[in-house]
Design a protein around this nucleic acid. Sequence first.
RNA 1: GAUUCGGUAGCUCAGCCGGUAGAGCAUCUCCCUUUUAAGGAGGGGGUCCUGGGUUCGAAUCCCAGCCGGAUCACCA
Length: 547
Amino acid sequence: MKIKFRKRYLIVAKRSNKVSQCACLLDSLYLLCVARLYYIRKKLHCMELNEQQLQRRQSLQAIRDLGIDPYPPQPFEVNVTADEIREHYENDKLNYKNVSIAGRLMRRRIMGKASFAELQDDTGRIQLYINRDEICPDEDKSLYNDVFKKHLDIGDIIGVTGYVFTTQVGEISIHVTSLKLLCKTLNPLPMPKEVDGKVYDAFTDPEQRYRMRYVDLIVNPQVREIFLVRSRVIGAMRDFLIQRGYLEVETPVLQPIPGGAAAKPFITHHNALDIPLYLRVANELYLKRLIVGGFRGVFEFAKDFRNEGMDRTHNPEFTQMELYVAYQDYNWMMDLTEQMLREICTKVLDTTSVMLGNNEIEFGEPFARMTLFGAIEKYTGKNLHGLNESEIRSVAKELKVEVDESMGAGKMIDEIFGAYVEKHLIQPTFIKDYPVSMSPLTKKHREDPTLTERFELIINGKEIANCYSELNDPIDQRERFEEQAKLLDRGDEEAMFIDEDFLRSLEYGMPPTAGIGIGIDRLVMMLTNQASIQEVLFFPQMRPERR
RNA sequence: GAUUCGGUAGCUCAGCCGGUAGAGCAUCUCCCUUUUAAGGAGGGGGUCCUGGGUUCGAAUCCCAGCCGGAUCACCA
């Protein structure tokens, strides 16, 4: 507006060289008013559409005026995909004499009475050759001259039929004999281009990509690939577990007591019951109730919710697979985990080693196994085993690890581990035997009552799985919960609540059980070499868009 | 949360020692019947993130804010 005025003012100033300054001023004031009115009208009538959006709406109307439905209700029969044509045409030409394919128009090269275009379906792109006199055999050339050349835009969804051929420069293409508009689009797409492997004008702004994932998926094929891997990883894991006879179950997301993990929950309210409910931070306590109920093995791919920080490895909601198997222990679960990851990696990526940044992670070799205190001693020189809370606090201070009064011994050990050890564990490593205080749901170690039978699997310096021999002594469990309750009172917002119903279930008897939780998002990050969790979530949480 | 970098056309970005807003692609008009970043000719398109300040004059300098990226710290 300001600029428009300035431009006009300059024009006026030039024109009125010989006119009095007063007249010039009046003139420009008038133009200012006109410009403002024009601006307001533009805003009201066009809802701030840009030129290209307006153009597309005009094309939409023009198409309707030609008697064509831009959003037809009939199905369009597709009998081939872009990928299939590119792969099999050369060896099976007779089978591609009558193809029908649908997708987005992604590029047009119009050369007068004939054109090339690129159609993108869910498998990739295929070139189209469109000849005016073939799609318009009669006098009426409007389908080519008006609809195709003028009123179709990049991104529009079309269906074509025709036969496959190879062009003079050797590109497998579809010679189009008929073309139908299936959906007119009103927003222009970003237009990345690739020349000799170099990508220009890529749609790379992470904010835009995450906010408009649909656009990201249309124009960035590598993004689509990540989500295909994600789906296959989950599929392979599910197959692995079902093959072994474990039951896939579903347990409550809305929980009256948020149990099973040290984490800050989201809280909500149920109107009819007039009670607070929490979004689950884990499903552990429910799956164990099912083991009490008599299932031998249960698992769930669970969305968990934690009201904590957000960064490139944390999203407020994330996916965990939790598995509980009766009559097993954590040693057995180590073997199963190793086997499962090896199988998933092989099935999904057809290899046992993956590049992750500069590190090559090897899933084919046996995973290293170390005790927690052993690992801490290895990397800090301090043996924490047998130390009491105040002794650990002083070691933590000596190591310059930040601790505060609300932290118990377990929490401080975890801090030290995080600061000194975790980053060194690049290859898959099981860290086992955690102190009792940091594992309130875990059975005491068979040889050392100050420890628990628990392991975490660390890969590339990140925890990816957490497993226990599950505590099934109801009296011991009650005492551990009471310890947690004291931490809650001390101000540890992540400490656990006492879950009376869970305790009651243990009093009915839970067989010895091994349980594990595997972070699916992190696993997928590793298998797709992604540094941020947003890249493996379709719709990562974002601040709301303004207006 | 701390530090740091950034926000300019539909997209990717340049301009930033203050002085009339630029490029490529996209879009529009015209030419072109095997092109492929198709080509040729011409045109349109901007609240330079927002709000203050300094100045005759701010996209540019200063302050505040909003949004985002990266790094660091913490939860998975």
